[in-house]
Simulated assay, not measured.
Amino acid sequence: MDLDVIFVIGLIIGAFSIPAMINAFSDGRWPRGSFVALVIGGAMVGFAAWTEPATYTFAQVDDVFVSVLARFLN
């Protein structure tokens, strides 16, 4: 799997886990599943950024996301 795809999937998993975590806290539950998803997403983003550190900066996140989306839509 391409590192760009791993990076984008990690971002998506991490982004979806945050509302689930807030929901669990507001219901008074411990957010086990969303915490695991956040760790998995963070590990995927961290692995991609650690493997190629110059490729993934904050300024290039949107370019990477759009390029991966364009690859899947084409």
Rank of each mutant, 00 (worst) to 15 (best):
M1Q: 08
M1E: 14
D4N: 12
I6E: 08
I6K: 11
I6T: 13
I6V: 07
F7C: 00
F7K: 04
F7D: 03
V8N: 00
I9L: 05
G10S: 03
G10A: 01
G10L: 02
G10R: 04
G10E: 01
L11A: 07
L11V: 03
I12K: 08
I13S: 10
G14C: 05
S17K: 03
S17W: 00
S17R: 01
I18Q: 12
I18H: 08
I18S: 05
I18Y: 11
A20F: 12
I22K: 13
N23L: 11
N23V: 14
N23F: 14
N23I: 13
A24S: 07
A24K: 14
A24P: 09
A24D: 10
F25D: 15
F25M: 04
F25G: 03
F25Y: 04
S26I: 15
S26G: 12
S26L: 08
S26H: 11
S26A: 14
D27C: 10
G28K: 04
G28E: 04
R32H: 15
S34N: 01
S34F: 05
S34L: 00
F35T: 07
F35S: 13
V36A: 07
V36S: 04
V36H: 07
A37Q: 08
L38E: 03
L38Y: 06
L38C: 06
V39M: 12
V39S: 06
I40V: 09
I40M: 14
G41P: 01
G41I: 01
G42C: 03
A43D: 15
A43E: 02
G46I: 01
G46N: 00
F47M: 10
A48W: 12
A48H: 04
A48M: 09
A49L: 04
A49R: 12
W50D: 05
W50L: 08
W50G: 03
W50M: 12
E52V: 07
P53D: 00
P53W: 05
P53S: 00
A54K: 11
A54T: 06
T55K: 09
T55N: 15
Y56L: 00
T57D: 11
T57L: 12
T57I: 04
F58S: 13
F58A: 11
A59D: 09
A59C: 00
Q60S: 10
V61H: 06
V61M: 07
V61T: 13
D62N: 08
D62K: 14
D63T: 15
V64A: 03
F65D: 02
F65K: 03
V66A: 14
S67H: 08
S67D: 03
L69N: 15
L69A: 12
A70C: 12
A70N: 06
R71D: 14
R71W: 13
R71V: 02
F72T: 07
F72M: 05
F72S: 06
L73A: 09
L73V: 09
N74P: 13
N74G: 10
N74H: 13
